[in-house]
């Protein structure tokens, strides 16, 4: 039988090791990818077209496609997500309607991305083909928008809840209508929080792959309109690493992975900065 003191010591050491292992895993994954990928990065890699299915050349069209796809997805999802959050925080008390909406949002958050892909394929790519032109940026973005909706609703809701009730009461007491109060008082105060949520969902959009395999088309040509098929960086990484799979291709895949990691890192830092200022201001 070990003494109480010894078991306390063992447990504490084990927990410290656990904490550090988590960090070590992160460093291992990121470190290895950067180690293999950083030397692939160059101006040419970022600005040239891929050749030989991506095993030579750069990733320019996939960067452009990623930006288009992300912007389009957010453009579709943000108004809906913020609107839903306003409705939930400002217009309803807990009741059947709220419960149903919350159930929907939670259920949506849990659905695997490949199932979103099947849905997007059946609905946007096949059924709405005359509108979306089948596999296209718009089909992918509509699918992506439904995927980030739960995150957007939740983060916007949290931001709206931090706005003090007294602000609303002050505005209403001055004779403003409910919508005026929301538009002129509540939304501006909650804006940094909402923006943080939007920025964080950029990360999810950029990393999404499975659903896009079934909806975006995967073409390496530079998309000229939202009705053109496209290939994002994440899709490109997968296709180059798995379907080409040569040594050269793997190297290019690591280059793409490095660009992705750096982008995600920047997004996280920006979101944290905004959030920090927001918290400092509101407390």
């Amino acid at each position: 039988m070990i003494s109480v003191k010894t078991s306390q010591k063992i447990a504490k050491t084990a927990l410290w090791i656990a904490g550090f292992s988590t960090v070590a895993i992160l460093i291992l994954v990121i470190g290895y990818v950067l180690f293999e990928g950083l030397h692939v990065l160059s101006w040419d890699f970022l600005t040239e077209n891929p050749r030989k299915m991506g095993s030579k050349g750069g990733i320019f069209p996939t960067i452009v496609a990623t930006i288009y796809f992300t912007a389009l997805t957010l453009l579709i999802a943000t108004p809906i997500g913020v609107g839903a959050a306003i409705f939930l925080t400002e217009y309803t008390r807990d009741g059947k309607v709220t419960r149903l909406i919350r159930f929907g949002t939670e259920a949506l958050a849990g659905i695997p991305s490949i199932v979103f892909g099947l849905f997007g394929f059946a609905f946007f790519v096949i059924l709405l083909e005359p509108v979306t032109h089948g596999w296209s940026l718009i089909s992918g973005a509509l699918t992506g928008a439904t995927m980030i909706l739960p995150t957007l609703v939740r983060t916007s809701e949290e931001a709206l809840k931090t706005v003090p009730v007294s602000y609303r009461e002050g505005s209403l007491a001055l004779g403003a209508t409910k919508w005026q109060t929301i538009q002129k008082v509540v939304l501006p105060s909650a804006l940094p929080g909402i923006i943080t949520g939007v920025i964080l969902s950029i990360g999810r959009v950029i990393g999404e792959t499975a659903a896009l395999m079934l909806t975006l088309g995967g073409s390496l040509r530079l998309p000229e309109s939202v009705f053109d098929p496209a290939r994002t960086m994440s899709m490109h990484l997968y296709l180059v690493a798995m379907e080409v799979g040569t040594k050269e291709a793997t190297e290019k895949a690591f280059g793409t992975a490095t660009v992705l990691i750096i982008t995600i890192f920047i997004i996280n830092s920006v979101a944290n900065q905004i959030l920090k200022r927001f918290i400092a201001k509101s407390s």
């Binding site: 988590t22 994954v29 990393g207 499975a210 990484l237 997968y238 992975a257 992705l260």
Partner: peptide, 8 residues
């Protein structure tokens, strides 16, 4: 760790 894309 949560933000790294699954393909990576």
């Amino acid at each position: 760790l949560a933000g790294i894309p699954s393909v990576v």
